[in-house]
Amino acid sequence: MAKANVTFEDINVTVAVPAGTRIIEISEKVGAGITYGCREGDCGTCIMKVTEGWQNLSEPSVLEDKVLRENMAGKHNRLACQAQVLSGTISVKPA
């Protein structure tokens, strides 16, 4: 299975993960600082900043875009519970 490297900048840890893994699954296991609530793309608690490899994540859905807008999210912010890793290298940190 294709793998990607996700770096959690706040704790200085990089995790090699299979493609398709959602960021929140990794963040939770590795103890990074991305907090979460509903895990269903609704509450906006898990907004994170993607500092590198934005294009290596799945495209945001219409629903995710709406939640990001409602939460006044900045450029290159994503919901960790929705963004799936595709390939390459990605760096994230809590928004």
């Binding site: 770096t7 200085n12 840890v13 990089t14 995790v15 090699a16 893994t21 990794i26 590795v30």
Partner: peptide, 18 residues
């Protein structure tokens, strides 16, 4: 050391995480 930016970064395989 982390406060001073001296701690080495870690690389972990997802499969090794509990």
């Amino acid at each position: 050391e982390e406060l001073l930016g001296l701690r080495k970064s870690k690389i972990i395989d997802f499969a090794d995480l509990a």
